[in-house]
Measured scan of single mutants.
Amino acid sequence: TETRTFTDEREARRFEQEARDNGKDVQVRESNGKFEVRVK
């Protein structure tokens, strides 16, 4: 599991989409204006 934290939602979404395109299981959590993207 890899976790990346972004402050920019667009960057978080781009990373999320890229991971999904690669067939990964992705979860995005938002807290305090930060976006935590977990990739399995």
Rank of each mutant, 00 (worst) to 15 (best):
T1R: 07
T1Y: 15
T1N: 10
T1S: 11
E2W: 13
E2F: 14
E2K: 08
E2I: 14
T3K: 07
T3L: 12
T3G: 05
T3M: 10
R4F: 14
R4L: 09
R4Y: 15
R4T: 07
R4W: 14
R4E: 02
R4N: 04
T5Y: 15
T5N: 05
T5W: 15
T5E: 07
T5C: 15
T5G: 03
F6W: 03
F6Y: 05
T7V: 09
T7L: 10
T7C: 14
T7E: 10
T7N: 10
D8V: 04
D8Q: 04
D8F: 04
D8R: 03
D8T: 09
E9P: 08
E9M: 07
E9R: 06
E9W: 10
R10E: 11
R10V: 11
R10D: 11
R10Q: 11
E11I: 04
E11M: 07
E11G: 03
A12S: 02
A12F: 05
A12K: 00
R13V: 05
R13T: 04
R13I: 06
R13A: 06
R13Q: 07
R13E: 03
R13K: 08
R14Q: 11
R14Y: 06
R14T: 07
R14V: 10
R14H: 07
R14N: 08
F15M: 04
F15Y: 12
F15I: 03
F15C: 06
F15V: 04
F15G: 01
F15R: 02
E16L: 08
E16D: 02
E16G: 07
E16T: 06
E16C: 15
E16N: 01
E16F: 09
E16S: 09
E16M: 14
Q17F: 06
Q17P: 00
Q17T: 07
Q17V: 05
Q17R: 11
E18G: 05
E18V: 08
E18W: 15
E18H: 10
E18F: 12
E18K: 10
E18D: 08
E18Y: 12
A19W: 06
A19V: 05
A19N: 08
R20W: 06
R20E: 03
R20P: 00
R20N: 04
D21S: 12
D21Y: 09
D21N: 13
D21E: 12
N22A: 15
N22M: 14
N22F: 08
N22I: 08
G23Q: 05
K24F: 15
K24V: 06
K24I: 08
K24S: 09
D25M: 11
D25K: 08
D25E: 13
D25H: 12
D25R: 08
V26Y: 03
V26N: 01
V26M: 02
V26F: 02
V26P: 05
V26E: 00
Q27A: 09
Q27S: 13
V28I: 12
V28E: 01
V28D: 01
R29V: 14
R29P: 01
R29D: 07
R29S: 12
R29G: 05
E30M: 14
E30Y: 15
E30H: 11
E30G: 06
E30A: 10
S31I: 15
S31Y: 15
S31G: 06
S31T: 13
S31Q: 11
S31W: 14
S31A: 12
N32D: 11
N32F: 07
G33S: 03
G33K: 03
G33I: 00
G33A: 02
G33T: 01
K34R: 12
K34G: 08
K34V: 15
K34P: 01
K34N: 09
F35R: 01
F35Y: 11
F35D: 00
E36Y: 14
E36H: 10
E36S: 05
E36N: 04
V37H: 00
V37L: 03
V37Q: 01
V37R: 00
R38N: 08
R38E: 13
R38H: 12
R38S: 13
R38I: 15
R38A: 09
V39W: 07
V39Y: 06
V39A: 05
K40H: 12
K40I: 14
K40T: 15
K40R: 13
K40S: 15
K40W: 15
K40P: 05
